[in-house]
Amino acid sequence: MTQTASTPASAAGAQASGWRQARYLLAENPVSAMAFVLFALILLLALFGPWLVPYDPLATYAGEPLQAPSAAHWFGTDNLGRDVFSRVVVATRLDLSIALVAVALSFVFGSALGAMAGYYGGWIDRLSGRLLDTIMAFPLFVLAMGIVAAAGNTVENIVYATAIINLPFYARMARAEVNVRRNAGFVQAARLSGNSDWRILALHIFPNTLPPMMVQISLNMGWAILNAAGLSFIGLGVRPPTPEWGIMVAEGANFIISGEWWLVVFPGAALVLAVFTFNLLGDGLRDLVDPQRRT
């Protein structure tokens, strides 16, 4: 259904034109370009954070609690005298990994389930539909709370809970994308060419569903980070004194009404920045994948 039927004069492959398209969009849309830069920065902090920070994020300095931001402590210190900057930077890895693993899990299982349901229909479809409906019948954050509370208050369970509540998004998307292509001409042609069902699904249909899925992954990363931070904010999963953005905001909450703003603002801002980056990235990818549906 692409409307770009016009033939580019050069014989360059779609890969090259894809890159050109990407470069063009980045140049035209500086916001997406910024998102890519921020993403690289966050990735860097997650990988090398512990070696970059000036202080041990766990070390307490009883002598200097609740210091406002200064040259020595850029983001100030908390009530135990720990350096907020170091804690914020080191927390990047944990927050990012929770979200990444959760999203990866829900992508793999969700899209496999959805693709099967969309391709075969019938009882697989009905069964998976029931399962997803049941998950979606809960307010998702509340379900995550329930799962973590029941399965045990650990970081792994935060990951599983986040993966479970994200699963329906991938499954439904994969189902819809596979379903519209199930009887497309090229799929029928593949059948006539002697391809088996799983081959058609894996090699012919699934690659076509990837672009919208990538957008979903990016947007979902932001949401997963928010969820995990929200859970630790109410005391689930990550335990103090581990540095993690949600828990740091929770600890700082007691001091906000007495004016020690930096305990909340810096970890909160880091959280916002990370989520913001993934959301912008998702929007940018959407432009790349589907220029007609730019929002």
Partner: peptide, 12 residues
């Protein structure tokens, strides 16, 4: 709106 965690907005 989708990037701001509610607990952070509330505290701010």
């Amino acid at each position: 709106g989708v990037s701001l965690p509610t607990f952070f907005t509330g505290l701010l």
